[in-house]
Design a protein around this nucleic acid. Structure first.
Lengths: 183, 183
DNA sequence: TGCTCCATGTAACACGTTACATGATTGC
DNA sequence: GCAATCATGTAACGTGTTACATGGAGCA
């Protein structure tokens, strides 16, 4: 598992409440790891029990129930231990590939609309990532090691979204062409 | 869920036992959807109960416990219904990105070895896919619609593995360069 | 005889998703 | 006063993973 380690990383970047983490997971961190607020609360409770993190009431004079979590030494050590571990390659697990295979077996299902819809979604993401890149990583700027790594992660997202936009165009070509047997 | 639909697709291609499906899922189908044998047996039992598939003893005179599943009309209809559904984009969920982010926050962890290991794994997969492509989809051959789609799925795998091989090289560059602050 | 592979399964647990619940604060 | 958002949580369920169990078939 590594939701806990994603949370530790996020908390090291900035101590936060569960709610804040959930919102951040819908943005930058969530590019490559999504989680619902229920998962996050459950995991925070576990990690506090395990002594990896500690919580304190938010400095708002008890106005809200908000609790801020921060990483303890044991949590930092656990993150370091885990980060050095070898991990198996993630498999892609893409439903669309199953749908395409089904289309091949049981005949044309009209997946073109779905692929166009996905192409648009990927194009939107790509655009959003490029805007973030232009804003946070201007060309020619000298970057710290940390910023270089963050830039690389963002570029990973850009690479994948570009791939899928191009892939969609190719897929549409195949689906729209009649093929030799149907000529 | 779509393990059931992946299984239906696979069974439509060829009626099989759970064991055979598990082995096939370690190969071509498993490029984009992995499943353990326990998952597969559980799911086959459910689908039989739901009337999507039916099983019969393998034609081996009762020598083995092997049972062959084949898809019923209701299963085919369910697959068709599902294949036309809209699906949300899968998020990438890559542990290595979490590790890189952790490296950025708590300092160099020596992830180079891990990235080189992954680069080799991706290169192996890429090579395997290209061999399959050369064998099953020779250049210039006229392909049926079905074969075109299967080829496209294989090319998807090739595209992604190529991306990750190249990505690894870039990532190694970033991790190995000292950065302006450490000069 | 003992080893490996075939073939199926139970059980327990970990992780992820969805629905629902609660109450306070902020802004109109 | 009302709605939206903040903030946390319980419960139930679905899916995925890991460990273990069972017994036959094929082969040296």
């Amino acid at each position: 598992m590594s939701l806990s380690h994603a949370l530790l990383t996020s908390l090291l970047e900035k101590s936060s409440s569960g709610y804040d983490l959930a919102r951040r997971f819908d943005k930058s961190i969530g590019f490559f790891w999504h989680a619902t607020h229920q998962q996050i609360y459950r995991e925070l409770a576990r990690m506090e029990k395990a002594g990896w993190i500690a919580s304190s009431a938010a400095p708002d004079g008890g106005k809200t129930r908000k609790r801020i979590y921060n990483v303890l030494g044991a949590g930092r050590q656990e993150l370091e231990r885990w980060a050095r571990e070898a991990a198996p390659l993630a498999d892609m697990r893409d439903e669309l590939m199953v749908r395409l295979r089904a289309d091949a077996v049981i005949g044309p299902l009209g997946l073109e609309d779905e692929i166009e819809r996905r192409q648009a979604l990927h194009a939107d993401k790509l655009k959003a990532y490029r805007l973030i890149e232009a804003r946070d990583f201007p060309a020619g700027a000298a970057l710290s090691r940390e910023a270089q790594i963050q830039h690389m992660i963002l570029k990973t997202g850009i690479m994948l979204e570009e791939s899928w936009v191009n892939w969609s165009a190719e897929a549409l070509n195949v689906l729209k062409s009649p093929g030799p047997s149907a000529a």
